[in-house]
């Protein structure tokens, strides 16, 4: 059971990172992986394959939209974008995260 909870936490975090990475522009999966890696300075690097189930799950939930387009090097690529629902969720999650990390920081005495 412990394992599942860990997974949940990781999944929730990954979802948030994905949503966050799509705030400015729509991206394909590879670009999302790169931007998460860059933004987190490789700290949150996971197996890149794990990104895709998360993307598809978010798409199924209606938080992401997608369309097929051509990449910079003229390959067929699937581009994801935030939907309105996705933006709202991201806002709610960001706020929750901020409050929680602040609380944790207080507990840890780092604030």
């Amino acid at each position: 059971m412990g394992k599942t909870k860990e997974g949940d936490l990781l999944q929730g975090t990954l979802d948030m990172l994905i949503l966050k990475s799509l705030v400015r522009e729509h991206k394909h999966g590879y670009a999302i992986a790169e931007s998460i890696a860059a933004a987190s300075e490789d700290a949150l690097r996971v197996e890149e394959g794990a990104l895709y189930p998360a993307l598809h799950r978010l798409e199924l939930k209606g938080l992401l939209g997608s369309e097929w387009g051509l990449s910079d090097n003229n390959r067929r690529a699937k581009y994801y974008r935030l939907t309105t629902a996705g933006r709202k969720t991201l806002a709610a999650e960001t706020e929750r995260w901020t409050r929680m990390s602040a609380a944790i920081a207080r507990v840890m005495g780092t604030a």
Binding site: G12, M16, K61, G62, K88, A92, R96
Partner: peptide, 18 residues
Amino acid sequence: MDPHERGHRASHGNGLMR
């Protein structure tokens, strides 16, 4: 339950997602 999913449900309801 996935906290993310809960948040989503709160804001959009079941029907749409289904």
